Amino acid sequence: MTFSQYLQSKDHSPATIRTYEKYLRVFTGWLQSECIHPDGVCYEELLAFMRWLQAGGRSREAVAIQLCAVRHYFDWRIAIKAGCNNPAAGVYIKGIPRRLPAGMLDIEMLQELYRNYCQLYASTLCGRVILGLLVFQGLTVREIRQLEITDVRLEEGMLYVRGGRSYNGRRLKLDAAQVRQLERCMNAHGQLSKIRGMRLLNGHYLREGVSKLLKALKKLNPVIKSVQQIRGSVITEWLHHYNVRQVQYMAGHKYASSTQRYQLSGLEDLAAQLDEHHPIEIGIHADHHGSL
């Protein structure tokens, strides 16, 4: 089994496999230049390799990806019985900044956005369905594209979202406001809806539909920037009512850390709003108690 085949067995995408293969060539090239056999690699050699990467101008993010490729490499050696340990297991780069979502919208604004869009664009069924899935379930465009008609259970009031390589599947409640739109969308398929695997929305036109939807939403509210902003707003709102693990499930996040960053985003937005609307009060509070 080759390294590429091993990565395929772990359900990595072709693009990710190419990236790991590229980074692995860097590592094996360094081993050869240092006359080090893979079996002789331990923590000290990994530190030396990371210092070499940094000296060459590699960013912390690039070094982290490089280490990930190295971890897979030694796991592969163990799988093919060419090695017995993984010196890179548990070795990670700390302090890598993660981009935080910004400009979150509150639930009232999202619901008003949905109502206004449905009233002004009554003829755009596709747009109304997409917006409902964004506002009420916080789906990504990829997840919307993969929805099948059988995933919508109107009688149960539930939506089944299929998992993928980078996100988990889940079962989410439908909002009463979107049921009618979904029912019309399903009825529009007619007899085709009985075909297994039939998509809820035509993937060929979905990208164009999302683009048109976004343009319309920006006209209704200039603060709208992207569909990711809407999803982030929904997740932030969920965190006001549910714990992190529950929201992790609802959002389909593989890792709790992906969910927790929205907690920080909510605090930053709150601080920004306070600073904008109550600067005097904050100044007095700081003077009276010493520091915030």
Rank of each mutant, 00 (worst) to 15 (best):
Q178F: 15
A89W: 03
L182W: 11
L110R: 08
L147S: 08
H277I: 10
K194V: 04
L100A: 07
A102F: 01
V91R: 03
K212S: 12
S226F: 07
Q111R: 15
L192F: 02
W52D: 15
L292T: 05
R162T: 14
E148P: 01
Y92R: 14
Q228E: 15
L67Q: 02
L110Y: 10
R99P: 03
S4D: 14
N86L: 10
A122L: 04
L239G: 02
L100S: 03
R98G: 10
P97R: 10
R18M: 10
E148W: 01
L270I: 13
S233M: 08
I195V: 15
S265E: 09
K81A: 15
L125R: 08
L105A: 10
L46R: 06
Q228S: 13
A102S: 12
L113F: 09
H37G: 07
V234P: 02
R170D: 09
G127P: 08
G132F: 09
L159P: 04
E61G: 07
R231L: 11
L217F: 00
I107L: 04
S4N: 05
A15L: 14
Q181S: 11
C118L: 05
Q66R: 04
L100K: 08
I230S: 12
V91C: 04
H204E: 05
I96H: 07
I80H: 02
Q137E: 15
F74T: 04
G190W: 03
D75R: 13
E237C: 07
A82N: 11
S59Y: 03
D11V: 08
A272L: 14
V70G: 02
E281I: 11
L53A: 10
M250V: 07
S59C: 07
V247L: 02
M158W: 03
N221Y: 03
V234R: 11
L217E: 03
S257A: 10
E276T: 15
K81D: 15
L110K: 07
P101E: 08
F3D: 08
R115Y: 09
E21T: 04
G83N: 09
E208Y: 07
F3R: 05
K225R: 15
S233E: 05
V26M: 02
V179G: 00
R184A: 14
P14Q: 12
N168Q: 14
K212I: 06
S166V: 12
L110Q: 06
N85H: 09
V135Y: 02
Y249K: 08
G57M: 04
Y20R: 04
Q137C: 15
R261Q: 06
L200A: 12
P101R: 05
E155I: 02
M186V: 15
V223T: 12
Y92W: 12
Q228V: 10
T2E: 11
R128Q: 15
E281Q: 13
E112P: 01
M198C: 11
V223F: 06
C68E: 00
E148F: 00
Q66P: 00
S226K: 06
G209V: 00
R207H: 07
G169M: 00
